[in-house]
Design a protein around this nucleic acid. Structure first.
Lengths: 217, 217
DNA sequence: CTGGATCCTCAACGATACTG
DNA sequence: CAGTATCGTTGAGGATCCAG
């Protein structure tokens, strides 16, 4: 059994205690995906294909014991269990966004072989890079495609709403590869990205200019 | 040898990449202490008494390889090496503060047996809980003592400056134990804490009321 | 004395097979 | 679908030793 002495840092400190819990391997990734919405065991597994099932089980139990995650009976057919964040777990969002911002800016270079993009990682990337200051008075909706991943976002009242899947009435559809990152960092202009075909859009190019204002790394 | 496949999450995502680096055991604690200031190997070791030396060496090398930490020759007697954050490393501060806030509020209960408080953990705790909104027009300086740990803070222009050691001309000296946390969460009032002797102050009690406004969990 | 390197042990992780 | 069980591998913990 896990003795108390392991996995602790021995400091009476909020930060150290936080890291003891969410610093475990895979834990923060689970929180990231659950920030997008409640999920079942299998959905979590599909969103994190490389996590072993026993580790997924162990982490969920630990996060539950820490009051970050709770199990709820699904109201859907066949029942089953849903994992969702508690209010305390939801409060991790600022930390997740801050780390995501840092990572996108400082350590995200080119995709490595076999690296994937998932619905939830894309959705959180949008939330991470969203610039409320540039969203004043903006009302727009986007569908974003990256390979098999399709998500969408609506901007209104200076806020963002995100979701998985297509958005039939989207103002603009953006079909992009990793080059989208270069647009978000400002390395290349939106028009350039369209011109050299590293990004393909369906809709008004001006809306893609707007997109580059709304989401910055 | 450590193949590339270990310790990665296989996702092209800023957040996942960040966690691959700073999610390693001890890594975030090292960043926390280095955010306070550059340090030598032995100082880092004393600030994190439970870290094995080989792990400290390994983490410093990894953080250096990731561009977060750099080594600098000390200008002090005998030379020696100083470890300090790079600009990229400094940019981790928002994430560290966000995690610290979450931990202080959600998972920091009572001190566990053998848990210690260090200079750097106290300093970062002050920075974490500092409320700029309540510091408008405030000009005050505090010396804070917790057992053997003595640090200080100066508030001015809505900003905070922190440092290790005493502050001879401090407006107020606060000598407290873990009960200080209860004051910062609002569980007990500053005056109560003084009355029941869980906090001892040298100076005007009104300045301790002010302290409780400036630092909140 | 600082700044490590080396060794061994054991707990945690990773891969996969299996079960209610 | 939602986990357990098993087992090999990797990294952390702890003590000791070495070089400048």
């Amino acid at each position: 059994m896990g003795m108390v002495s392991t996995r602790t840092y021995g400091q009476f400190c909020g930060f150290a205690r936080a890291v003891e819990i969410v610093g475990e391997r895979w834990a923060m990734l689970l929180v990231r995906d659950l920030l997008v919405g409640p999920k079942r065991f299998g959905e979590l597994q599909r969103g994190l294909p490389k996590i072993p099932t026993n580790i997924l089980t162990a982490r969920l139990k630990e996060l539950e014991a820490a009051g970050i995650v709770r199990r709820r009976a699904s109201t859907q057919p066949g029942g089953g269990v849903l994992y969702e964040l508690t209010p305390s777990g939801e409060e991790l969002e600022p930390a997740v966004l801050a780390l995501g911002r840092w990572g996108a800016k400082n350590v995200l270079d080119a995709p490595r072989p076999d690296e994937i993009v998932t619905n939830d990682s894309m959705i959180m990337a949008l939330r991470t890079t969203f610039q409320p200051k540039n969203a004043k008075g903006v009302h727009a909706s986007y569908e974003l495609r990256m390979g098999p991943v399709v998500i969408h976002a609506r901007i209104g009242n200076g806020k963002i709403e995100t979701g998985a899947g297509p958005l039939p009435d989207a103002d603009l559809i953006i079909d992009a590869g990793p080059a989208l990152k270069s647009v978000m960092t400002g390395e290349i202009s939106p028009r350039e990205a369209i011109a050299n075909k590293s990004v393909h859009i369906i809709g008004d190019p001006a809306l893609f200019d707007r997109f580059a204002e709304l989401f910055k790394i």
